[in-house]
Computed example of a mutant assay.
Amino acid sequence: MNSLKKDARRLKSVPPEYRASVYAKMEQEKRSQQDAKSRELLASLRATLKGLKEELRKACMECAQVDLISKISACEKAIKKSPKPTRKWSPTLPGSFESGQKR
């Protein structure tokens, strides 16, 4: 990433159409880092949810169950609202005849 920033600084005297590939690569790396962070967050939320559900099965007091149920619902809402990883655009649709898959 640092080398790309250095390359971007060196390219200030170069016409913009040649700089575009360097900036595109920087954006791609930035997005991939953000996707990795969101995947880690989502995995930790799912692990927390699984642990809370296990505790709910083992809990015998009603006050503990109510508290766990509220924590579970909050965790489920956070999972639903978590950012989805960006997908790479493709000119062919996954089920189209141009994708090279034979039936």
Rank of each mutant, 00 (worst) to 15 (best):
Ser13Trp: 11
Lys53Thr: 08
Arg39His: 08
Glu17Gln: 14
Gln34His: 07
Gln33Asn: 13
Leu45Ile: 07
Ala78Arg: 09
Lys88Ala: 15
Lys71Ile: 07
Thr92Ser: 07
Leu52Met: 07
Val14Phe: 15
Ala59Gly: 06
Pro16His: 15
Lys58Pro: 05
Met61Glu: 15
Pro83Asn: 06
Glu62His: 11
Glu17Ser: 11
Arg103Gly: 08
Lys84Gly: 01
Glu40Ala: 14
Ala47Arg: 05
Lys37Pro: 00
Arg9Lys: 15
Ser90Phe: 09
Pro85Asn: 05
Ser99Ala: 11
Tyr18Cys: 02
Lys6Phe: 15
Ala8Gly: 05
Gln65Lys: 15
Leu49Thr: 02
Met61Val: 08
Ser73Tyr: 12
Phe97Asn: 00
Tyr23Ile: 05
Lys88Ser: 13
Lys77His: 03
Arg9Thr: 14
Lys102Gln: 13
Cys75Met: 06
Gln65Ser: 01
Pro91Gly: 04
Lys102Phe: 15
Ala8Glu: 14
Ser73Gly: 04
Ser32Pro: 01
Lys30His: 10
Val14Pro: 05
Leu41Trp: 05
Lys88Val: 09
Ser3Pro: 05
Ser70Trp: 11
Met61Phe: 10
Cys60Tyr: 14
Lys81Phe: 10
Ala24Cys: 02
Cys75Ile: 03
Met26Gln: 09
Ile72Tyr: 03
Ser44Trp: 03
Asp35Thr: 02
Leu68Gln: 01
Ala8His: 12
Ile69Phe: 01
Ser44Cys: 04
Glu27Pro: 01
Ala59His: 12
Lys81Pro: 00
Leu11Phe: 12
Asn2Met: 11
Arg10Ser: 12
Met1Phe: 12
Asp35Gly: 05
Phe97Thr: 02
Gln33Arg: 14
Lys25Tyr: 03
Ser13Ala: 13
Met26Ala: 10
Ser70Met: 08
Lys37Trp: 09
Arg87Thr: 15
Glu55Val: 04
Gln33Ala: 13
Ala36Thr: 14
Ala43Phe: 06
Thr86Phe: 03
Thr92Tyr: 11
Lys50Ser: 10
Lys37Phe: 10
Leu56Ile: 07
Tyr18Asp: 08
Met26Lys: 00
Lys30Leu: 07
Lys5Gln: 10
Tyr23Met: 04
